[in-house]
Design a protein around this nucleic acid. Structure first.
Length: 179
DNA sequence: CATGGGATTGACT
DNA sequence: GTCAATCCCATGC
């Protein structure tokens, strides 16, 4: 799912971007919020697929995940970077004085650029306010870079990070592995 | 109820 | 390269 989401489009109220980087998380591995079982925070991860799992990181940043796997099984894809597609003026207002390639080049950045809120947690991503739509017509993925996930201390060896190789909007450090 | 630690970022050296 | 910011929640007593 994390690979298949590359090229899909995330939007919120006329601000949108194309997914260029993702990470996969699953209850079977200790980096997942669901590893210890269902808690107040991770509840939506155990719900049906296609919903938004949103949480706050480091007290500051908002993270957007797409819930995967049937109800009862907890897995999700962290959306880590977008190529800005529409609503760039609104993104620039929210993000301040940064270059366009840094508007959405990280999970906290894209959430800020799109105005994603904690209250968007648990909403259906086919209904909104946060939407995930299929790849644009005619869009085909180029080479995919694969590597270990960023910013975690457990299960650091799993190569579950995926990005469009060489894309300028991918977060640092860039994954290097061949897909 | 108290404590501790992040699926990060931006400013600074 | 270092480091602080600082919310939410898991854990343990």
């Amino acid at each position: 799912m994390a690979q298949d989401l590359l090229g899909c489009v995330v939007s919120r109220q006329r601000v949108s971007g194309l997914i260029v980087e993702t990470e996969a998380y699953h209850e079977i591995e200790p980096a997942s919020h669901a590893y210890v079982g269902r808690t107040a925070r991770s509840g939506t991860l155990f719900g049906p697929p296609g919903f938004a799992y949103i949480y706050r990181s480091y007290g500051i940043h908002t993270m957007l995940n797409l819930v995967c796997e049937p109800e009862g099984s907890a897995a999700g894809v962290l959306i880590r970077a977008l190529e800005p597609r529409s609503g760039l003026p609104r993104m620039r207002e929210r993000r301040g004085r940064v270059g366009d390639h840094d508007l959405c080049s990280g999970p906290g950045k894209l959430a800020q650029a799109l105005g994603i809120l904690m209250s968007d947690n648990g909403r259906d991503l086919r209904v909104g306010p946060v939407l995930v739509r299929p790849r644009p017509a005619g869009w085909t993925p180029g080479p995919v870079a694969v590597g270990p996930r960023v910013g975690i201390t457990k299960a650091v060896d799993l190569p579950w990070r995926f990005a469009l190789a060489g894309h300028p909007d991918v977060s640092r450090p860039r994954p290097r592995g061949a897909g």
